[in-house]
Design a protein around this nucleic acid. Structure first.
Length: 466
RNA sequence: GGCGCCAUAGCCAAGUGGUAAGGCAUGGGUUUGCAAAACCUUGAUCCCCGGUUCGAGUCCGGGUGGCGCCUCCA
């Protein structure tokens, strides 16, 4: 496996800190709203990474946090007039529902901020004890960036005069403008936790370092093997996490850093402030989760990804090819069998998740399978190999998990389905009687319902039209 | 202003310095009562200008054009 490390900006061979094991931490969502395409991209990329590492034989411990305490959450719960936990439970559940629809497997661990407070206290206390943090008169605890020799080594930034912009938590007792809050002291607020540093709430960056130390740390030169997240988190979020961990524990945070590119919509960045977020639950109304998975995972993870309907449709057609092949072999049981295709597929993905190369291999496999089935539809050995390859693709990439018939009928309601079946039966009778005029008329009627027919030796089937 | 990324056929998109994968769309063909699917076939010298090299999409320099981070953000 080779991974592009965004800190050294080079592709490096992956070597685990502990032989045979991989510790992977990815920044998860703040649960105050529905998940959007950006959340999906990140979750999908690291889901794929996890699958590839597992296919290579590693024992992967994958943690993705859930931030369930935050100013945005507090504000929204007040607006909505519901409790914090009611709000965060609702959106945590929604997040899980959406990710599961995209075929994203649940991580090994999903620590919540509110359940990791003790670990955060430990971290902050260590930083205070070693002089890397200080408390101000209003109860805030800040990380002293000036005390960390390694600060800015993750994002490769330079500390210059222009970097004097005020941070949100800016306060004039801060020693340096870049110092960030580990703990925000709160006096007159009921949404606060008791801590050794007084009543308050954790700063945004604190939880990740604390959780990593608590759940994943290998206690070697680096806390974990791989840390991932969206490219926008590189600075300041990951820089600050790394600083906390470095100063509190003496080891670096991660040996490899991976950042996925952004999802834009029609060329524009999708962000909360622009208000053009595209929710996954809305996309799922028109397309199956697997089509969205295939589309979002279709370009390299580090590239920016532009979401638009036209490209989505082209991606769906490409996935259709896989399901067409599945249809030809429908009903046959797959047996595990290693093939050169499978080895090549894993090798392609092992090269920093080169999905384009993997898909090219997949397309070639599909073409060869169709050709072979055309040449000799009864070759059992050949079919067995194809089925084994399809099963491998399903487990490694998560493509081909659906019933192929259901896949092509996605989006048609039950009533219409029954109507279509009735018309097909009538058309079948007309065809038997060689009344092609009537059979064509019936087909037009069926086509008008948004589906198309396919006559095969096994009977007539229908699919939803694009 | 500081730091950084990207620019390959109509569209999406790979590409260890040696004469450009794959998919969608398009045209032609085989098959089919018709149609669909499947299969065969059809197209780019890689933003521009210099340089290094026997040889560059692929390295270096300079442009032009997009975009991102520096503030909550996947």
């Amino acid at each position: 496996m080779h991974i592009f490390d965004s800190v050294t900006k080079t592709k490096r061979r992956f070597e685990p800190l502990i032989p045979g094991k991989v510790s992977l931490y990815v920044c998860g969502p703040t649960v105050y709203d529905d998940a959007h395409l950006g959340h999906a991209k990140s979750a999908l990329v690291f889901d794929l990474l996890r699958r590839v590492l597992e296919a290579e034989g590693y024992d992967v411990t994958y943690a993705r946090n859930i931030t369930d305490i935050d100013d945005k959450i507090i504000n929204k719960s007040r607006e909505a007039g519901i409790s914090i936990t009611e709000l965060t439970d609702t959106y945590t559940e929604a997040y899980h529902r959406d990710m599961s629809a995209l075929g994203v497997r649940r991580p090994t661990l999903e620590p919540k901020a509110t359940e990791s407070l003790e670990a955060m206290f430990d971290l902050i206390q260590k930083l205070l004890n070693t002089g890397h943090a200080y408390q101000t008169s209003n109860g805030d605890v800040y990380f002293d960036t000036g005390s960390d020799n390694g600060y800015l080594s993750i994002s490769n930034r330079r500390q210059d005069e222009t970097d004097t912009q005020q941070r949100v938590e800016s306060f004039d007792e801060k020693r340096h403008p870049a110092d960030f809050a580990l703990w925000k002291g709160v006096q007159d607020d009921d949404v606060a936790f008791d801590s050794p540093f007084g009543k308050g709430r954790p700063g945004w960056h604190t939880e990740c370092s604390a959780m990593i130390e608590k759940h994943l740390s290998t206690h070697t030169e680096y806390a974990i093997d791989i840390h991932g997240g969206g490219a926008d988190l590189l600075f300041p979020h990951h820089e600050n996490e790394a600083a906390q961990t470095r100063c509190a524990t003496g080891h670096e945070l991660a040996r490899y850093w991976m950042h996925n590119g952004f999802v834009t919509i029609d060329g524009e960045k999708m962000s909360k402030s622009l208000g053009n977020s595209f929710f996954i639950k809305d996309a799922l109304k028109a397309y199956s989760g697997e089509v969205l998975r295939f589309f979002l995972l279709g370009t390299h993870y580090r590239s920016d990804f532009n979401f638009n309907e036209e490209d989505l449709l082209a991606a769906k057609k490409r996935l259709d090819r896989l399901y067409r092949l599945k249809k030809r072999l429908f009903g046959m049981k797959a047996v595990e069998e290693r093939t050169p295709f499978q080895a090549a597929l894993l090798e392609a993905l092992g090269d920093d998740l080169n999905i384009s190369k993997a898909l090219a291999l997949l397309d070639e496999m599909i073409a060869a399978a169709n050709e072979g089935l055309d040449a000799d539809p009864k070759d059992k050995d050949f079919k067995r190999k194809v089925l084994a390859d399809l099963a491998y693709v399903e487990s490694l990439l998560g493509y081909g998990t659906m019933n192929p018939y259901a896949y092509f009928q996605h989006g048609i309601d039950e009533g219409t389905k029954a109507k279509i079946e009735g018309l097909i039966a009538a058309r079948h009778e007309a065809k038997q009687a060689k009344d092609f005029e009537r059979s064509d008329a019936l087909r037009s009627e069926i086509t008008a319902l948004g589906v198309q027919l396919m006559d095969t030796p096994q009977g007539t089937f229908w699919e939803k039209t694009e």
